[in-house]
Write a protein that binds this DNA or RNA. Sequence first.
RNA 1: GCGAGAGUGGCGGAACUGGCAGACGCGCUGGACUUAGGAUCCAGUGGGGCAACCUGUAGGGGUUCAAAUCCCCUCUCUCGCACCA
Length: 833
Amino acid sequence: MDRKYVPDEVERKWQDRWIAEGLFTARRTDREKFYCLEMFPYPSGRIHMGHVRNYAIGDVIARYKRMRGFEVLHPMGWDSFGLPAENAAIKEGVHPARWTYENIAYMKKQLIRLGLSYDWSREVTTCSPGYYKWNQWFFIKMYEKGLAYKKASFVNWCPSCLTVLANEQVIDGKCWRCDSDVVQKELEQWFLRITRYEDELLQACDTLAGWPENVILMQKNWIGRSEGVEAVFKIDGQEGSLLIFTTRADTLFGARFLCIAPGHPMAAKLVSDKAALEEVKRHYGKMEEKHGLFTGHYAINPVNGDKLPIYAANFVLMEYGTGAIMSVPAHDQRDYEFAQKYSLPVKVVIKPAGGGPLPEGKAFEEEGVLVDSGPFTGLESAAARAEIAKALEEKGLGRRVVNYRLRDWGISRQRYWGTPIPMLYCEQCGIVPVPEEDLPVVLPENVKFTGKGGSPLAESQDFVNAVCPKCCGRARRETDTMDTFVDSSWYYVRYCSTEDEPALDKENIKYFMPVDQYVGGVEHAVLHLLYSRFFMRVVRDLGISGVSEPFQRLLTQGMVCMETVKCPEHGWIYPSEAKDGKCAKCGRPVERGRTEKMSKSKKNIVDPNQLIGAYGADTARLFSLFAAPPEKDLEWSEKGVEGAYRFLQRIWALVYGNLEKLKAAKSTPQGVSPLVRKTHQTIMRVTRDIERDYHFNTAIAGMMELMNMLASVEPDDKNAGEVRFAVERLLLLLSPFCPHVAEELWEAIGMPPSIQSQPWPEYDEDAAREEEIELVVQVNGRVRAKIMVPQGLPDEMLKEKALADPKVKEFTSGKEIAKILAVRGRLVNIVVK
RNA sequence: GCGAGAGUGGCGGAACUGGCAGACGCGCUGGACUUAGGAUCCAGUGGGGCAACCUGUAGGGGUUCAAAUCCCCUCUCUCGCACCA
């Protein structure tokens, strides 16, 4: 009867049953669907607490929606291409495929051990040919539509390893392996024309009602739309001209010189000292002191004919606008700094509208009133911009344009472990896509991983040598692979069909898309989400789906944090290595650092395996959900975990301690007792807290309150029915959070499994309402009395009762009552003078 | 620098549209049961005061019968972008 709670035993039992019974498979039905998705992990080896939190949140939502009667699609997979696998191959000699698939097998076990309710028949593994075939297919479709193209672009290059480096392999401008200085090397690379959708992607941001404000803002800023004008500056005494972009046409009369990017085509033409130009290029794009070089030429300001010197400058970006700017040192801080360094003149053309003074020693960048600006003098900035733009357009020397910060998406990677870009270079026909029927272009397995030289694929002659599908002549295969963000840009579409079904089944996609709830970390707020929004539109424009926005609602969960401990001798140490404020190794007093995101380097990590081993998956889930609302950072606390465990123990003890009485009782409460009322209130609260932005922490608090009340009720013949009623409801409410305990106890009290297939409990609003309420009486805003009154009395009665209260009289006697207010039948405030 | 968000007990966090500040959990204090307690149960727990009461949501001002919540200023922290012309 007094069975002990052994989480491991209970959890494995139910995990096996759920899988055997296929409770979590989704299929197309007449019911309304709910697509619940969590960002799939990179198979790094083992899961971390961040995954536990992310997937616990998603699992509660999926299980809750199932109980609410939805056909829930809740899939999981592996973002399994990427650099770490290749690094492991270089360092340890394991093949990336083996390394990856072993990691996947292990991590899958871990996820199952957490009791997550996934439909594994839809498992996606991006490094499998069956998946990346479709990356290639999309690529070819995009190539046909002009959405994929090739152009020269810079990569990080290590001159010692003779290899391209990813951004994360460049540490402080040096190679991660050999510490050599990294240089920029120009290569031909493939790009996806996301900019074709820039305007739509920006506009549609305002339709993302279910997204957090900050993420929408980050998307908008990333796209970075700005309105301005392009103006033509003729070059003095020479053929040709320079086109510049500015958002501040109102400062055009203040231009004192022009700056062009060192890589600008005109730079090479205008500058005779090539070595000096190279020097400027060396500093290009670096956040440091500005470097410039006078080209020896002048340009003519189209509005007033001023002759302005032309400089090549490191801070002017070739990728934005036209790669050339007009420099207005009086009204742009960057130009000001440049002018200071090269002793160039400054001309003020804007003054503060209020007539205040100009700042000293820096540029005045705000808007104001124009001075010294010819016919435009006296206009305000906004009006002047319009007028000057008009004047330029009339002269044919300029036009209004909109510029975006967003660049096309460079997807070429000089790596092995990624999707081969399905292109051929034919000696006769040039660039030729691999025919659809020849897909996938499979990664060859027998390649060497040295970490040196070019891409491993380029070394594989079997791979490189190909036949042109057009002319049957000799062709060379593209050896670059795709950015792994391509893989994750459409995996949610792939999930709509099972592994056995066609990959892009329109009917399946129509039924399941879009994702109703997406859950993941903020670190993907910009790139992954933007690329996915782009890809969804491509899928749409290929006629595969009618959906434009892939993710209806987005929840970005906070980080999992823990305190850090530092020893003066040993550096960061695990909290367990500190005893009584001293380092266990050397005995020196430790320094308590701040609470930070869990990371291996800071040694402030908790291993999910150990956690589950000690307390079970239900406790791990419960604590992750209870300690903070999902969107906020969560501070890990061993004591807090124990508290969560204790809560489950108490429920367990409650059921097993009264098992016979509970089993014998019928769940038919007689009337509305305090326990029955509390039960209805709890159902109401938990439901509301879940519906209101998934505030699981308060929902769990509500269940704890009900548990506390249950613990104070000793079941006897009279009340056994209502206790059983409360216990049943409590288990139902608990089941999305701690599914194993809920199942086990549900079965224990004699209910047929599975609790997962039960409907979400209903509440009775009348039964939930208190018969008596505590009326708060304030005098001049201060609480002076609390009186129990029947529910629903009219305001006049409440005021009367309040005034009659002896305590209140003490504060009102002899004073003039100015006003009495009653608020929602719960509070009365008496204002006296 | 620009943009966004946050600041509530010893700690994590509650408080729906302005209406009892501190739900729930942790910790702490006292008690019970115990050979024992780092198990369990009961009671208490923002600060000050014997008390009636006073005071309290980063700091300062304001609106209101009433402010953690709304408005203005200041400070601190976190995040994002960062030479985008």
